[in-house]
Design a protein around this nucleic acid. Structure first.
Lengths: 180, 180
DNA sequence: CAAATATGTCAATATGACTGACGTAAATTC
DNA sequence: GAATTTACGTCAGTCATATTGACATATTTG
C-alpha cells in the first residue's frame, strides 16, 4: 500500500525546510482523526448528542465513579462547559450522579444501561475502524502505533493520564468501587 | 516505554466486549490529537487565528494555486464556513487570491511571505512533536505509523486525497503553475 | 465557627460549523 | 447570441462547544 498524500501529490510544497515525512504525518493525522471521529458523530447525531457528550460518556464508562473534578482534568475544559453536556446526559438517562460515600459533596458519575448501550455502538464503530487499520499495518505495528501515539501526548498530560487514577484519593475511592 | 493509559488504569471497564487494545488506541488518539493540535493553537492564538485558519493556510501552502472549490472538498465544509476564515486570512495578508489563467471565475489561492512565515512556525512546532514521537517509536515504526493513519482514513476520503490533485482539470492547471 | 473544597449556576461572549436564499460574473451550451 | 451552468460571494439566522467572570450552596476540615 502506498501513501496517498505522497503518491498523488508530487508537487506539494510546504515552506522551505520542514521534513516531508513530518508534513505527511501532519496531513494523515488530520484526515485520520476526522474520519475516526466521524464514525461516532454519525451515531451520536441519531440521539441528538455531539462529540462533547461522547467524550464525557466515554470517560465515565471507562472509569466508573469518576468525579466531576476528574472529568474537568481529563477533558481540560471548564466546569461551565461540562455542566450543560453532563446535564443533558443525566436528563437523557445515560448517566447518573450520586453523592460520594465518604464525601457527600462529590458527585460520583456512573453510566446507565442506556448509556452503556450507546457506548457499545460508539466503541464498536470506532474499534472496527481501528482494527481494520492495525490489521493493514503489518505485524508488530500495533506496538509501534501505541508507542507513537503515547509519545505524541504532552509529557504532562501523559503523566496525568497515567497517574490520575492512582492519586491517593481517587485511587482509594475507585478501588473501593471497583473491587468491592 | 510503557503505555500510560494501560499501565496506570488497571480497573478500566468499557461495556462488555470491545477489544481492550482498540479502546486503548481510542483514548491514545484522543489525547495525542488534542496535544498535537494544541501546539498550533498556542501559536495561532498570538495572531488571533484559530484552527480553521490553520487548516486553510496549511492546504493553500501545500497546494499553491488551490481553488476555493478544492478547499471545500478537502476540508469538507460549506463555502459559508470557509468564507469568513478565508476573508480574514486575505485581510491579514497571509493569503492572496487571483483570477484563474484560463477561467477567470476561479480564485487561485496563494500564501504570502507572511503566511509562509506563520506556517513555518506551525509546521515547526508540530513536526517537532512528530519527530520526537517517531523517534521514540523504534526502528521502522515510521512506515507502520503511516500505514496505520492511512488506513484510518475513510476509503472515499483516502481516494479523494490521493486523486484530487490528479483530476484532469486541477492537475493541468497546477502543473502549469508549479512547473512554469 | 471559619475556611477551604466540590459542585452548580447565571450571564455574556467567541469560534466554527450549519441551512437556505439570493447575487454576480464568467464560461459553456444550445 | 441568448440561456444555462459554474465558481464564487454574501446576507441572515441557527447551533454546538467552548470561554471568562461572578456568585451560590452544601459539606468537609482546621
Amino acid at each position: 500500500m502506498t501513501v496517498p498524500a505522497a503518491s498523488g501529490l508530487p508537487h506539494a510544497d510546504v515552506g522551505e525546510d520542514p521534513s516531508p515525512e513530518a508534513v505527511q504525518l501532519i496531513e494523515l493525522l488530520f484526515f485520520a482523526y476526522r474520519d475516526f471521529t466521524g464514525d461516532a458523530d454519525a451515531i451520536l447525531a441519531e440521539y441528538g448528542y455531539g462529540r462533547a457528550h461522547h467524550r464525557v460518556l466515554h470517560f465515565i464508562t471507562r472509569y466508573p465513579g469518576l468525579r466531576v473534578a476528574d472529568l474537568l482534568l481529563i477533558l481540560n475544559i471548564t466546569k461551565q462547559s461540562l455542566a450543560r453536556v453532563l446535564r443533558q446526559l443525566v436528563e437523557g438517562d445515560l448517566v447518573v450522579q450520586s453523592a460520594g460515600d465518604t464525601d457527600r459533596r462529590e458527585r460520583r458519575l456512573h453510566v446507565t444501561p442506556a448509556g452503556r448501550a450507546l457506548m457499545r455502538r460508539l466503541v464498536g464503530a470506532q474499534a472496527r475502524r481501528i482494527k481494520r487499520a492495525t490489521g493493514l499495518s503489518g505485524n508488530g505495528a500495533d506496538a509501534a502505533i501505541r508507542r507513537f501515539l503515547t509519545a505524541m501526548i504532552e509529557p504532562e498530560t501523559r503523566e496525568m493520564v497515567s497517574t490520575m487514577l492512582n492519586l491517593p484519593k481517587l485511587s482509594k475511592d475507585l478501588n473501593g468501587e471497583l473491587q468491592p
